[in-house]
């Protein structure tokens, strides 16, 4: 055995995605929730690059390039929202943001 089949890569990224989703669902600190979202994006990026390698096509790596750009934009807007929430509430737990709660 001198190479890793695509299925093993996808299982690794599935596990990593699950860890990220656990962070989003179980943590209440908004910074750690945002970091966990990054973890999930990262897992999908690894899956895309692994698929690009397994199929010998470069497009998978280009998708990761675009997804990195979207992630950078997402972090910028997300952290701006965190700063705005902190300024108006003084706290940043996700449970504190309940103004639109029914």
């Amino acid at each position: 055995m001198n190479a890793v089949p695509l299925g093993h890569w996808l299982l690794l990224t599935t596990a990593l995605f699950g860890v990220g989703a656990a962070g989003v669902l179980l943590r209440r600190n908004v910074m750690i929730v945002l970091m966990s979202v990054e973890l999930m994006l990262n897992a999908v990026n690894i899956a895309l690059v692994a698929a690009a390698r397994a199929h010998g096509q470069i497009e998978g790596q280009l998708f990761v390039f675009f997804s990195l750009t979207v992630a950078a934009a997402e972090v910028a807007v997300g952290l701006a929202l965190v700063v705005a929430i902190w300024r108006s509430l003084g706290r940043t737990d996700v449970d504190d943001v309940s103004v639109m709660h029914g």
Partner: peptide, 16 residues
């Protein structure tokens, strides 16, 4: 997801 990945036709694909 793991079951879906493990049963996918491309799961055993080795890198060319």
């Amino acid at each position: 997801l793991s079951v879906a990945v493990a049963r996918a036709p491309a799961a055993g694909r080795m890198p060319p």
